[in-house]
Amino acid sequence: MSFIKTAASTLAITAVTATAAAARDNVQVAGSSTVLPYASIVAEAFGDNTDFPTPVVESGGSSAGLARFCEGIGENTIDIANASRGIRAGEIEECAANGVTDIIEVRIGYDGIVFASQIDGPDFSAFTPSDIFNALAPQVMVDGELVDNPHTQWSDFNADLPAADILAFIPGTKHGTREVFEEKVIAVGCEETGAHDAMIAAGMSEDDAEDACLAVRTDGLSVDIDGDYTETLASIDANPNAVGVFGLAFYENNTDTLKVATMSGVEPTTETIAAGDYPVSRPLYFYIKGAHIGVIPGLKEYAQFFMADELAGPDGPLAQYGLVSDPELAATQAMIEAEEAM
């Protein structure tokens, strides 16, 4: 029995010291799975290049991350929340109610996606969200009626588009970009074509109609790509008529084989995305808990390291992985330096 006694007391001691040992020396980050790849790249480089331990980056989604961020102050709460959207007023209130004030908002850069096709393929040079919706939705509006998608060629619904068979390679559901694709293209197209109103008129609730709007056709004309953009590129190479969804950075590295289409008349470039003109993009953020700066070692340094030109700049590893670098990087760097809260 003495073994069990020793074991039990060891465990009791461990549990007691756990609270004491939690004088944590690493930065803890949680939140958006879209930001997770970038944060993990920075965290690894931060651990390799500084004397601080590698930060922990958990996924779980923007809302879950911000909820944990707002739980309170102290070593048992996270220091940074990653988010693929801005913090909401309600969340700031929730934070304030738990004593989390002095939140520093850092815009990492932008997540932009483009529609590209083979450089020698049909002339896909201008799309609108309605075009993409008409091509890819399972149900579309034809002559004012909501019907199962009859379109097989792009010219079926827009005479300006080439008479080529519809085939699109879109990000799979486990990609962060899928969300942008759904929100900024498919959902907008759904509204514009009137399919959304028609669904509600047909007796669907507002929520159901919004969900139904995000669906894509399953007859093989729209293909989910779960791998990286290289896989999409390989599929485009094999199918001259296909249109694929890429990150802007990826397209820019492959301009010799791909040509890009404008969206609602705006050409995707770093400038148009940064200026907010190109519609299919969104800013990515992380939020720092001001009260933890100086308490958790390496927190400010991590934020500074993240936003340094070498990482978040246009030639850095984050841009290589697909982030559209923020042209106002210098302002953000100065803001972190001054610990300016929102």
């Binding site: 461990t14 040992a21 993990s40 651990g47």
Partner: peptide, 22 residues
């Protein structure tokens, strides 16, 4: 309980650290 993401990125340094560190 937060064990997915970029979490197992360092070895624990010691027995207590093994129990309580991420």
């Amino acid at each position: 309980i937060g064990m997915v993401g970029y979490v197992a990125r360092e070895y624990p340094d010691g027995i207590i650290s093994g129990f309580v560190d991420s």
